[in-house]
Each structure stands twice: as C-alpha cells, then as structure tokens.
C-alpha cells in the first residue's frame, strides 16, 4: 500500500518543531508500524536526510519504550502498543499523522522521543515494598487469596509507556499511579507502607506537572494493557484513608 505520513520533526528539546510530509510506497500489511518507519528511515538515510528519531526496544509490546500519537490516538487505532500495531490496520492511500506524546511532564527530546523520567521519580517516591535482599520470609508463609493475587497481577501489567498521560486532556498520570497503588495495595506484603506510599506518590505526581483526573476515561481506553479506571478509584480511596488517618 501507499501512504502519506505527516510526522513531527524537532531537532532538539529547545528547537521549534513542525509537521513534515513524507510518502512511502509498497508497504506490506504484515509490517508493524515501526517497521514501516524503519523503511522510511532507510529512504531518508539514502538521500542524505537525517532519519526520524523514535523510541522502541523490545518490539513485542512489553517494555513500554515505544509510544506514538498516531492520527490523534495514543498507540494508534488498535488497543495495543505502537510496536504491535500492524499496517493491516490501515488502508492504501491513508494519510497518517505521527506525533510524540504531548504532556508538560514528558518534554520532547527530539522528533518523536520524549523524556518520561517523571514516571521513574513517581515510583522512587514510594512505588515499592521495602524488602531488603535476604530478609524475606519463606514464600508460602503468607497465602494470598487468588482473587487478590489476580487483581494485583492485572494492575501490575502496566508497562509504563505513558499512553494514559498522552491520551488524557489533563495529561494526568493517575491511571499509571493507580495501577501501582492497586498492585501493591492488594497484596498483604504491601500493607505496612500503604498509607505513606499513596501520599508520597501523589505529591510527586503533582510536582512533576501532571494534571488531575476528571474521570474522562481516555486513559483506560488508550491503555495497551487495558488497565481499568477502577484503579483510580482505589487510588482516591487509599489517599482519602491515608490523609484521614494522618490527620488523626
């Protein structure tokens, strides 16, 4: 198939960016979206133009490194990561716009590459269970009811790609944070730090410049791992409890 691509080019963090139009032809429907960009980059390289910078690593939908706004949708038209989006989801003659994640907390580094370090800092603020190596009790000493283990697993499936932030009109990181709060909060091991965790993470989230949640739901709709909105409910509930208890 033949396609017209309008791609965001920006030489560096402080440079002015613009949309640039490219044509690609003979694209196979079995290619992934990123392989289609590889083909374009080879063409650009051959004619002496610098290839388009974009992030990707595992290319199997699990590392969370890739993420593009494709015709206005985070990761494009399917519920998956950009690397797992295939060209069979498009038609011959389509015009596709490709942009980086847009959020104050995710500044653009170059072209389609953004800085998501804010997510690491939210985890560092409390998204963990303090268990020094070697200090762990025997694994079977604490049974975990299967429904709780399953729900923890569901929330832990988050890959930290940032699509939730990119899709949200407020650029909120609440789905990302709610997923971690739910993952650790469902498990008995996560209880001792439950209150402190949610308070610290929310403080860091706000300090990074993410917006608040207004229950629109674009985040969950864009999430390649289909993390549901109710993790945000759990986040809010935990925060309320924590602040109440802290206030006592």
């Amino acid at each position: 198939m033949n396609l017209t691509l309008k791609i965001w080019r920006q030489a560096s963090a402080n440079a002015r960016g613009e949309m640039v139009t490219y044509k690609v032809s003979d694209i196979s429907p079995d290619m992934s979206f990123l392989e289609m960009l590889d083909v374009l980059n080879e063409q650009l390289n051959a004619r002496g133009e610098e290839p388009i910078a974009f992030d990707s690593d595992c290319r199997e939908g699990i590392c969370g490194m890739c993420g593009l706004m494709i015709s206005g949708k985070a990761h494009g038209p399917e519920v998956t990561t950009t690397c797992q989006l295939h060209m069979r989801s498009f038609s011959d003659g389509d015009e596709i716009t490709v942009e980086p994640w847009r959020a104050d907390a995710f500044p653009v580094i170059k072209d389609l590459v953004v800085d998501r370090g804010a997510f690491d800092r939210i985890i560092a603020a409390g998204g963990f269970i303090s268990a020094n190596t070697g200090a762990a009790p025997e694994a079977h000493s604490v049974p975990v009811p299967k429904p709780k283990a399953d729900r923890a697993f569901m929330a832990a499936a988050c890959i930290g790609c940032g699509a939730c932030v990119a899709a949200c009109p407020n650029a909120s990181g609440m789905l990302f944070m709610g997923a971690k709060i739910t993952h650790l909060g469902e498990l008995p091991q996560g209880q001792p730090e439950r209150d402190a965790r949610v308070v610290s993470m929310v403080e860091q989230h706000d300090a990074e410049g993410f917006g608040g949640c207004t229950n629109i739901g674009e985040c969950s709709a864009a999430c390649p791992k289909e993390i549901p909105m109710d993790v945000i409910n759990q986040l809010n509930r935990d925060l309320r409890h924590a602040l109440t208890r802290h206030g006592d």
Binding site: F128, I129, A131, T133, G134, A135, A136, P137, E138, A139, H140, V142, P143, V144, P145, K146, A149, A152, F153, A156, H183, L184, L187, Q189, G190
Partner: peptide, 22 residues
Amino acid sequence: TNIIDQCVAQGVPFAREYGGLL
C-alpha cells in the same frame, strides 16, 4: 529458593492456586 522468597516479599504477583499458595 531464596529468589522466590525475595520476589514474593517485594510483591511480585506470581500465579496462585485457590488456597492462596503459589
């Protein structure tokens, strides 16, 4: 065996049976 203990303590959500064991 220490690895499994360590990971469970960190909150790694391993698959479990209905009795709550791994």
